Simulated assay, not measured.
Amino acid sequence: MEEFGTGVKRLIFSYVKDWNITSDLSQDVFITVYEKWDTFEKRSSFKTWVFSIAINKAKDYLKSWHYRKMLVKEPFAFMLTTTNHSPENTLLKRADQEDLVNRVVSLPVKYREVILLHYYQDLTFAEISEMLKIPVSTVKTRLHRAKEKIKRSHEAKERWGEHG
């Protein structure tokens, strides 16, 4: 839990977007890890195995009736960082980060998850492939498409902002 707790919480939150649910699911992940420890076959890294369990728990929750009745309540605050610059620069940097976070959050899950796993969890294409049970080429394609969607969204905002 000490080594992967924060990463698991961030990963689950990227799916469910509710810190209370995230905490519950994170606990479930580590209970499952404890209960299923003897089934870990070491064909993958321990981190990959734990994150796979977290993804499955999050996806199971998203399929549940309870989730369909929920609304997104909190932004992805954990992804936002500040620097020790002037207050003006800090505000501008935070606004840029919030804009990027909002673009990532607005992506469909299949694109959002590869962005978060690769850039925020520092997982390799092979690890993501194993976790999501999709080919490495699909991971690369989804990552490329996700970046393109973010770029187009940013360009559209800039064009609109210049005229609006």
Rank of each mutant, 00 (worst) to 15 (best):
I31R: 12
D28S: 15
Y15V: 05
S86W: 00
G7I: 15
S106I: 03
K9S: 10
K73V: 07
V101S: 13
E148S: 13
E3H: 01
Y15W: 13
T22R: 11
L11F: 00
R152S: 05
D28I: 01
L80P: 08
K133E: 12
R103N: 07
A126G: 05
D38V: 08
A95M: 00
S129H: 05
Y34H: 05
S23A: 14
D24Y: 11
H85K: 07
K57S: 14
M1K: 08
Q27E: 00
E74I: 00
I53M: 10
M70K: 11
S45W: 01
A126S: 03
K63I: 11
S14F: 15
V33N: 02
K57P: 01
Y67S: 09
K147L: 06
S26N: 14
K157P: 01
L143C: 04
H154K: 06
W37M: 13
Q121N: 02
R112I: 14
V29D: 15
A54C: 03
E130N: 00
D18V: 00
F125T: 05
N20G: 08
I12Y: 05
V16A: 02
Y67W: 13
G7D: 11
V29H: 10
V29A: 12
E113S: 10
N89H: 14
S137F: 03
T138Q: 10
W49G: 02
